[in-house]
């Protein structure tokens, strides 16, 4: 592993996690979508740097794919939803921002402790970073659980997906291209469906805060 590529992997992997945690901090929905875009770029950097060190063409293609889907199409689609309701904010999350950040710190700690054995799977510098992916998954999950806005929850879901992707890149130097392709298409499909759903919900119910939908149960 060359020094530059190694440093890029280190930085980009940390960036994925930091951006994921920043998602807990920002309340502006458009800013959230922007964060998602940055996370996609960071993830693609990890993939590209890994591809460069291992001379893996498939992984390089995957990196391009990640940029296209996770930093391109998906944030653009979500951005349109966010723009249609300018000034929309996550006004009252279930857990307030400072507490969320403290919880996120605890989750990162847990991920590091729990993820330590992952290093044993594949000794190497990249695998040692794998707990970052786990931490990103947990941060995304926290976003999913504590936010009321439907859009923030979609972002949470995507952060989880990015965390899983980060782990696969770091641990196995990427899954086969076809699997990654399938995964990306899945995410894209989910986003398209959710976007359509959000549009319909807004046109029928106005403001979309999931807690107000409780009467639909049973």
């Amino acid at each position: 592993m060359t020094g530059v590529a190694g440093a890029v992997i280190d930085l980009a992997a940390v960036a994925v996690l930091v951006v994921g945690i920043a998602g807990l901090w920002r309340r502006d929905l458009r800013a959230l979508v922007g964060l998602l875009r940055i996370q996609g770029v960071a993830l693609a950097l990890v993939a590209a740097a890994t591809a460069a060190t291992q001379h893996d063409v498939g992984l390089g293609v995957t990196a391009v794919l990640v940029v296209a889907v996770k930093a391109g199409v998906v944030p653009t689609l979500l951005g349109r939803v966010a723009r249609s309701d300018p000034g929309a904010r996550e006004s009252a999350p279930l857990i307030n921002v400072p507490s969320s950040l403290v919880l996120a710190a605890a989750l990162v700690g847990l991920a590091v402790i729990v993820g330590a054995p992952l290093h044993a799977l594949e000794p190497g510098r990249a695998a040692a970073l794998a707990p970052l992916g786990l931490a990103t998954v947990l941060a995304g999950y926290l976003l999913l659980v504590t936010r009321r806005r439907a859009l923030s929850q979609v972002v949470g879901l995507l952060v989880i997906d990015n965390g899983v992707a980060l782990m696969t890149f770091l641990l196995t130097a990427g899954v086969p291209l076809i699997v990654e392709l399938g995964g990306s298409l899945d995410v894209l499909l989910v986003v398209v469906v959710l976007r359509a759903l959000l549009g319909t919900m807004r046109s029928r119910l106005g403001n979309v805060a999931l807690d107000e939908l409780r009467e639909l149960h049973d």
Binding site: L110, L144, D211, L213
Partner: peptide, 23 residues
């Protein structure tokens, strides 16, 4: 009780429990 957040929280707690148990 129909709250999405509660269901999601169940998921997160289950995930954390699995992580801790299987550590």
């Amino acid at each position: 009780n129909g709250s999405v957040h509660r269901y999601l929280a169940y998921g997160l707690l289950a995930l954390l429990a699995v992580l801790v148990v299987l550590r």
